[in-house]
Amino acid sequence: MLRTRIIPCLLLKDDTLVKTVKFKNEQYIGDPLNTCRIFNELEVDEMMILDITASKRAAEPNFKVLHSLVSECFMPLSYGGGITKLSQAEQLFYTGFEKIILNSILYSEPQIINNIAKVYGSQSVIASIDVRKGMFSGYQLYSHSGSTKQKPRILEWAKQLEDLGAGEILLTGIDNEGTWKGFDTNLIKMVSDTVGIPVIANGGAGSIDHIADAVRNGHASAVSLGSMVVFQNKGMGVLVNFPDKRKLYSVLAK
């Protein structure tokens, strides 16, 4: 059995890193290159970069910054934000990214998944799903960094993305993102049990126990970490770090 992947997720805004809470209240974290160098030293297995403003501004990926990141990082990288066409995905792969992450464009041009997967393989495409829990209407899909509500039903949408050729799903619970209170395990389980591809749980991790909960009870195949790897602790200052691997995998192995 493969061990659970634990993936630092960095939020890029222009040429700096920030961290959000429920997709709002951006806090400056630091320089992307310096942060990547620290994760090199911490020997993380892979890393995820998400540009949180590109789709909202209808801007393409910041290839200058991304090229610099690839040149500094020793681990496999995935990137999402502002990707709207195959040529941009091709440029990202050529730059050195192993996977690309698609979200907002999928609601208008879902076939882009198949177009990319046919050339580079399904393992290179991560379909991102951002979800809020409505007061009366259950779970609702959102795009463009949580600013635009979308109509598809979440489980039907997840299955459609799989059928189109996505190799993984990045599932973010907006209500939990940046809160340190744990994942929306019910949401993760719903999606994980519906699709046959790996689901990366994102949004809410505040402890190793939260990670274990997403894996054991949510059936997540991987977990993405934001606040836990850029802050000392909840309410404390910036400190790029990674959970103790021996403790982490000891808890996950129970």
Rank of each mutant, 00 (worst) to 15 (best):
E43A: 14
Q91P: 04
K245E: 04
S68A: 12
A158H: 09
K234E: 14
H210F: 10
A127G: 07
L141W: 03
N34M: 06
Q91R: 15
I105T: 09
R3H: 15
S128L: 06
S250Y: 15
I6F: 10
D51S: 10
F242I: 04
V238Q: 00
P61A: 02
E162Q: 12
K22P: 03
R37H: 07
S87V: 10
E72S: 14
E43T: 11
V18E: 01
D209R: 15
I29F: 00
V119C: 11
D244R: 11
H219S: 11
L164K: 12
F74S: 08
S147L: 05
W180C: 06
S147A: 13
N176V: 01
Q160H: 08
V230R: 00
S104C: 02
R153K: 14
R153T: 09
E98F: 02
I116G: 06
F136S: 12
L92E: 03
V18Y: 10
V215M: 03
V215K: 06
V119I: 15
K247M: 12
F183G: 06
E156T: 10
R216G: 02
V191C: 08
V21C: 02
S128T: 06
S192A: 15
D175A: 08
H210R: 07
A205N: 05
I112N: 05
G80H: 13
V215C: 11
R216L: 03
K189A: 09
I129S: 04
N115Y: 13
S224D: 05
D175Q: 12
S78I: 04
S124M: 04
H219Q: 07
A212S: 13
I49R: 06
K24H: 11
G235M: 07
D14A: 13
I83R: 13
Q88C: 10
A201W: 04
E168C: 09
S68V: 00
E26Y: 15
I83F: 12
I38A: 04
